[in-house]
Design a protein around this nucleic acid. Structure first.
Lengths: 344, 344
DNA sequence: TCTGGCACTCGGCGGTCGAGAGTGCCAATC
DNA sequence: GATTGGCACTCTCGACCGCCGAGTGCCAGA
């Protein structure tokens, strides 16, 4: 589609624009691209690129700016992604070397570090109950009328919830019920605990129906309208980008970032794509508030299973190659660490 | 200090400015204050108020704007705080009527609702381990080499942590150690678990020293650099305020809001004041990024004990009476709900 | 096919100007 | 003595204007 000189020019143009945030003129490209022709020739090529929809002119007699299509081509074909530099890799490793830090904190820190390293906004979702499998549950007596429910999952996560304990249930009756639940549900994905199983437990232990009901409420993930386990880092970084100097643009964006539910869907959805790292550019985004942004996402795995998602949100004029390299490194380290914590 | 007419004028001026965000002229006050004198008279009074430092003039021939001192006098002496309207109170009650929602989610929602109701930024800190007392701990065997530590506190909170289990400790030896810990620490504030007690347990059960060490790591609150349990709501609301139209002002502010540690200190510190509700206005704030903001804070109690803090951050031109009324209502409801959840 | 030259276009910047809002002061009035 | 209407003055803000510079498109020549 594009001959090699046009590719070089487009690449130089995108990278120059990423650096400067200013429309790029033919002179700058002549210097930077290394194609060795004069600005006049570049101008002709740029007119072609514009006709093909890869670049745009903010107004006559300004330089060119990459269009959505231009960024897309850059991301898909032109950019070269490298491994992050040594010190950066070291920083990522350091993040995960303290084994006593709880998973939550790990995820939170990951978001913080990613946002610092990129100067964009980072979104990291940690392991979620609804993607885990049931391993075992346990009820701990707290006092006469409260029980603490501890739910252990296959990947070493656990969830605890305080339950009101219906009176007059003997401890051994309760234990028997728990044992029954444990054998029936073992290995089940929590996303769809068959209500059939719960039903039979309920029938088997009629005196504990309300208790079973409470347990169901905990292990069946709710409407997930709460954004537990999703962490943002560097939301204020958006304000540093010159494209968001206009307040009205950034306001809608920041409001969107407060909607945990939407962000989670966004992450999960775009990371579904059959590629390692998914990049959604400008107008490709579903939400109008994000039309001037790009979102780079990836799922991370522990033991071959997706356990969470990572995303970086920045302006379309994002340092894609840097971000993609960084996410790749982080997703691997994070996955590895979670696998390491997985219980035998 | 101020005669009653000046007070009326100052009150009208502050309230008009809160409504309009524009410097207030003598005409507007003549209409609003109800003192029944002409604008010319008001002008004379305003000149006095300016000399006394209660109001300022952005430039000659503009209206007046309240100074920090003016706001202070308004908050301390002039404003009338009422109970929030019926529907608002109902909204607050609704927030807490579902007993199955975990405390974390309750706190998060509180922040969300407060920010919506005020259109400012809400900060809510939930009950913290370090302010709780030790009740009991329990170790649950997860598998051969992991234990789940469950720590119950006096106010019905609990904390769980996964520990690596040192090998070759018989279960009954471990249980004995737990029992010993439980009797020694019962009722202790977690903020300062005496290391003397831990020391004797360590001596008593020499084969479990590493385990005791892990437990100590959990129950002694860490450096609390993590901002667990602090929730923000409506940070994007700051951008709606006309005083933050200048990007550079809001950027530092939003960055500050990302520093959980600082916010927690701020909340705890300002809510220490010997009043129910503390108001910190503009220049009174320690951090320069907050010099154009006011912070209204309160501690909330359950059973006479402070368990957390609430704060509302907005522009100096804040609707103080509304905010104070709202915080009062919320802190009572929230405290009541947490007390209700407290274990017998 | 490439290049240098050249006329053209447009946004940004600084300066000027008039309108409008609100003041301070003064003399008259209650 | 307090209050008031009148009036000149000050200052901001938006509109308007012209200049400058960057960058283009096009063309003729290499």
């Amino acid at each position: 589609m594009l001959d090699s000189r046009k590719e070089k020019i487009l690449k130089a143009l995108v990278e120059e624009y990423i650096d400067t945030a200013q429309p790029v003129g033919s002179g700058a490209i002549a210097l930077r691209s290394g194609v060795g022709v004069s600005p006049a020739t570049i101008r002709n090529e740029m007119a072609d690129l514009e006709a093909m929809g890869f670049v745009e002119q903010p107004h006559t007699s300004a330089g060119r700016v990459p269009s959505g299509r231009g960024y897309r081509h850059y991301v898909d074909q032109l950019m070269t992604v490298g491994r992050p530099a040594g010190p950066v890799m070291a920083g990522i490793r350091d993040l995960y070397d303290d084994r006593s830090v709880p998973v939550r904190a790990l995820i939170r820190r990951t978001a913080g570090v990613l946002s610092e390293m990129t100067e964009y906004t980072a979104l990291v979702e940690g392991p979620q109950l609804e993607r885990a499998t049931f391993k075992r549950l346990e009820l701990i007596e707290v006092n006469g009328d409260h029980l603490l429910l501890v739910l252990l999952t296959g990947d070493g996560l656990f969830e605890t919830r305080l339950l009101e304990c219906p009176p007059h249930i003997p401890a051994d009756y309760r234990e028997a019920m728990v044992t029954s639940l444990n054998t029936r549900l073992a290995g089940r994905p929590l996303g769809n605990v068959a209500s059939r199983d719960l039903e039979s437990v309920r029938r088997e232990f009629p005196r504990a129906v309300t208790l079973v009901e409470s347990i169901r409420g905990t292990i069946e993930p709710g409407d997930s309208t709460e954004s537990e386990g999703l962490f943002l880092g560097g939301t204020a970084n958006m304000l540093k980008q010159p494209e968001f100097r206009r307040l009205e643009k950034v306001e809608g964006l920041l409001s969107l970032l407060e909607q945990g539910r939407i962000l989670r869907d966004l992450l999960a959805e775009s990371a579904l794509a059959p590629v390692d790292i998914s990049v959604t550019i400008g107008e490709e985004n579903r939400y109008p508030q994000m039309r001037e942004c790009s979102l780079v996402t990836a799922a991370y795995q522990a033991g071959g299973q997706t356990v969470g998602y990572i995303g970086i949100l920045g302006p379309c004029r994002m340092r894609y190659s840097h971000v993609v390299g960084l996410i790749t490194a982080v997703k691997e380290s994070l996955g590895r660490e979670l696998l390491r914590r997985r219980l035998a």
